[in-house]
């Protein structure tokens, strides 16, 4: 589970988050929605350890990780613009986190195939990431984050930029993938309808203590 306790953050002299608190219980998918510039991405980056807090705490499974560096937090993140590694193929991207965790090769390959199948990209392993369509790239990004079995998954507007039809189909798919894997997920979006479609529970960032 994930707990954010009265976190305040300033970026470039502007207070972005002001005493924000939030809890996500184990296996729950919580969506936070809010207008752009309201600090949604900052919230996720705080949980990931990519942004330092001025005050407050972040707890993962009851352990205070506020001072723990990103790579030891067991927190996966799906980025808005995917951030797939251009120098690795699809399988290379998905196996990156497993390599960092020191998983053995055979086990790694099996896990890569398993997650790729889960997101509906069976047999895509050898593809160059620059040849993927928008929807496929989003699926690969999700698979890559899920592969090392993170304790908490963070999703930063992961479906933004798709056309409406594809967006809705992918939202349903992602929901079932997250359900099946039982991953504790914090999902942020500007789209309230998307939040309600994907999540078990959705909250407005403005109610949580944002300054925007």
């Amino acid at each position: 589970m994930l707990a954010v306790e009265s976190v305040s953050v300033s970026l470039a002299g502007r207070r972005v988050l002001d005493g924000l608190s939030l809890e996500v219980t184990a296996g729950e998918v919580v969506a936070v929605f809010g207008p752009s510039g309201s600090g949604k991405s900052t919230l996720l980056r705080v949980v990931a350890g990519l942004v330092d807090v001025d005050s407050g705490r972040v707890l993962v499974d009851g352990v205070d990780v506020t001072a723990v560096p990103t790579h030891r937090r067991s927190v996966g993140m799906v980025f808005q613009d995917e951030q797939l590694f251009p120098h690795r193929d699809v399988a290379g991207n998905v196996s990156f986190g497993l390599e960092m965790a020191g998983v053995e090769r055979g086990e790694r390959e099996a896990r890569v195939a398993e997650v790729l199948a889960a997101v509906g990209l069976d047999g895509f392993g050898g593809r160059d990431v620059s040849t993927l369509s928008g929807g496929e790239a989003k699926r690969v990004a999700l698979a890559r984050s899920l592969a090392p079995r993170p304790t908490v998954l963070l999703a930063d507007e992961p479906l933004t930029g798709l056309d409406a039809d594809l967006h809705d189909r992918l939202a349903v798919d992602v929901r079932s993938v997250l359900r099946a894997s039982g991953t504790t997920t914090l999902w942020v979006t500007h789209d309230r309808a998307e939040a309600e479609l994907v999540a078990d529970r959705s909250v407005s960032l403005l109610d949580l203590g944002s300054r925007a």
Partner: peptide, 25 residues
């Protein structure tokens, strides 16, 4: 920069980010 952040969330240490992501790119 974005790819370095992505690598860190996937468990790469500072050194691993430099050698496996930044340098090749």
């Amino acid at each position: 920069v974005g790819l370095e952040d992505a690598a860190r969330t996937l468990g790469a240490s500072r050194m691993q980010v430099a050698l496996r992501v930044t340098l090749p790119l």
